[in-house]
Simulated assay, not measured.
Amino acid sequence: MLDDFDRRILRMWQTEPEMTAADLAGALDVPTARVTRRIERLRETGVLRGVSAVIDWAALGYGVEVSLRIQIDKTVAGAFDAFMAAARKVPEVTEMQSFLGRVDLRLTVIARDMAHWQSLYRDRILTLPHIAEIEALMHVATVKTDQALPI
């Protein structure tokens, strides 16, 4: 699906995502139109899903991150969908992943401080529907975070 030219574009963009098509073309020593066409094709095929801003939530005053492992009460029809719909409405839930196995879902939740976390947990998280079991894991440190792929 990807040829060497596509890979070169993606490798460069991963290391310097602020580069424009003209910047990429200059670095690759090819015409800007060629890079632009390739970028359009990468978007059309779904390889490039979009451009986003990466915001450091800690810099905005959120000092607590918690990972929640949740088991859903699967004896209730539609419980999984009802839980996910309700959890999506909690703005402090920054990520939700589903799993096969003992844990059904993992939520990442941010809070300003421990008092805010306690309020969120009691008033928003524990009131989510169809929770059979929940385990909270307090985030201590990020050991590795890397969105770059080995292209």
Rank of each mutant, 00 (worst) to 15 (best):
9 I>S: 00
9 I>F: 00
12 M>C: 12
13 W>D: 05
15 T>G: 13
16 E>H: 13
16 E>C: 07
20 T>K: 12
21 A>I: 05
21 A>S: 11
22 A>R: 14
25 A>Y: 03
25 A>C: 05
26 G>H: 15
27 A>G: 13
33 A>F: 04
35 V>C: 07
35 V>F: 07
37 R>E: 07
38 R>T: 10
39 I>D: 04
42 L>Q: 02
42 L>K: 03
44 E>S: 09
44 E>C: 00
44 E>T: 05
44 E>M: 02
45 T>F: 00
46 G>S: 05
48 L>I: 14
49 R>A: 08
50 G>D: 10
50 G>P: 10
50 G>Y: 08
50 G>L: 05
51 V>Q: 11
52 S>E: 13
55 I>G: 05
57 W>M: 09
60 L>Q: 08
61 G>Y: 00
61 G>H: 02
62 Y>K: 01
63 G>I: 00
64 V>S: 06
66 V>H: 09
70 I>F: 08
71 Q>T: 15
71 Q>A: 14
71 Q>M: 14
72 I>R: 05
73 D>W: 01
73 D>V: 02
74 K>V: 12
74 K>M: 13
75 T>V: 11
76 V>I: 15
78 G>V: 01
78 G>K: 04
84 M>C: 13
84 M>D: 06
85 A>K: 15
85 A>G: 11
87 A>R: 05
88 R>F: 11
88 R>T: 09
88 R>E: 10
89 K>V: 03
89 K>R: 12
91 P>Y: 02
91 P>A: 04
92 E>M: 05
94 T>C: 09
96 M>H: 08
98 S>L: 08
98 S>K: 12
99 F>M: 04
107 L>P: 03
107 L>W: 07
109 V>F: 07
